[in-house]
Structure formats: structure tokens, C-alpha cells
């Protein structure tokens, strides 16, 4: 069965027959396509994808020893305790339900004010001067849930975290190296903050309770 229309380069009488555009065709076609593209296609790809890649399809969730969901490797979290590494500033409060960037232009005074407050807080917390702070720590990400910081930004926080956990800095640095992502051919290495903090809690559980 040949579903092609006749080549209209041909000069047959049939090719001269043209069809009008009717409402009936438009609406019936729409109905068929809505079912195929809007229901069947998402259902098939979602089902097959979920079957092939069950972890990834469900949001790359992080669970603790008891199976409780602690978060997602793809969503940053808010950290304030000294024993934890802290991520980038978030315009969304690290909530993937309200993802957002700051949308502040470089010419906006509010951007400088926010960055200044952040930089001063970081300098005080880490005991460094502002010109030692890597730029990713004072810039809000586009999504507001960027899970990563640069290796330099992690190293800046290592001594504070080591102190809070009463462990030596070298073992914290070692943990940072283990939490590096994108070390392959694509991308440049970054540290997943939630992964790092979870692994610190697992490796040094005693000091965790000591701090609390």
C-alpha cells in the first residue's frame, strides 16, 4: 500500500484535484495526535526509561541506612552547621519546588550588596580574606539547586569542617577527592556537596553525635 500522495510534478488530471481544509479533519487529526504524542509517547518512554534506569528515573535519591530519603544528588541542600560543607548561594532556598536564579543583572546594586554580605560571612566563617574566596561561593546558580562547588571552594572549608568534627584536615581533604564528579573526558571536576557531607557522616559518625 503506497501512502504517498501522487507526485504533483506529474501533469495528470488527478494531481490537479485539490482538497479543502475542513474543520472536521483538523479536529479529528488533533484528537488522534493528542493521544499518540501527549499520552502514548510519554507513557512508553517513561515506562521503558524507568525500567532501564530505575535509580535515575526516580530522581537520583539519597537514602540513609534506614532507607529514609535524605535528598537527591541532583538537588542542593541548605547547610549551616560547622561540621558540614556549604554550597553556593541559592535564590530558591535550595528547594527544587521553587527553583530559581537570582536574575540580578551585573548593573544591579542588589547583586553587589548580596555578594558583599555573603563574602564577608564566608571570610569570617573560614578565617580567610575575601580575595581568597572562589567566585562560585558568592554567585547564585541558575537553578538555585546547584549541588556542586569547585574543588577550591571545598578546600577552603576543609579546616573548619575538620575542626568541627575533631578529625585531621588530611582525612577531610581525602573525602573531598572521593566526592569529585566529572573527572572524565567531559566537564571539569566539581564536588557534590550533599554526597560529601553524607559520606563524612558515614565515615565519622561518632564525631557527628559529639557535635550534637
Amino acid at each position: 500500500m503506497n501512502m504517498d500522495m501522487k507526485s504533483h510534478v506529474a501533469s495528470s488530471d488527478e494531481a490537479q484535484q485539490t482538497v479543502k481544509a475542513s474543520w472536521q479533519h483538523a479536529l479529528r487529526f488533533m484528537g488522534v495526535m493528542a493521544v499518540l504524542l501527549g499520552l502514548v509517547y510519554p507513557l512508553v518512554t517513561t515506562t521503558v526509561g524507568g525500567w532501564l534506569f530505575p535509580e535515575q528515573a526516580q530522581g537520583s535519591l539519597v537514602r540513609d541506612g534506614g532507607g529514609r530519603i535524605v535528598g537527591s544528588y541532583l538537588v542542593s541542600q541548605t547547610f549551616v552547621s560547622d561540621k558540614y560543607f556549604i554550597g553556593r548561594p541559592s535564590a530558591a532556598g535550595n528547594d527544587a519546588g521553587g527553583v530559581s536564579g537570582s536574575n540580578l543583572a551585573p548593573s544591579n546594586k542588589a547583586l553587589r550588596e548580596r555578594a558583599q554580605a555573603d563574602a564577608e560571612a564566608i571570610a569570617e566563617r573560614e578565617g580567610v580574606s575575601v580575595d581568597q574566596i572562589p567566585v562560585d561561593l558568592i554567585t547564585a546558580s541558575g537553578s538555585g539547586v546547584d549541588p556542586h562547588i569547585s574543588p577550591a571552594a571545598a578546600e577552603l572549608q576543609a579546616s573548619r569542617v575538620a575542626q568541627a568534627r575533631e578529625i585531621d584536615e588530611a582525612s577531610v581533604i581525602e573525602m573531598i577527592d572521593k566526592a569529585l564528579e566529572n573527572t572524565g573526558w567531559l566537564g571539569s571536576p566539581v564536588v557534590n556537596v550533599l554526597r560529601l557531607n553524607v559520606s563524612l557522616d558515614e565515615r565519622f559518625p561518632a564525631s557527628t553525635t559529639a557535635m550534637e
Binding site: L104, L111, T139, S141, G142, D146
Partner: peptide
């Protein structure tokens, strides 16, 4: 300029 950009 990393403002509004993702580190990865």
C-alpha cells in the same frame, strides 16, 4: 561571570 550559571 558565574552568577546565574551552573558550576558543572
Amino acid at each position: 561571570n558565574l552568577e546565574g550559571k551552573e558550576l558543572r
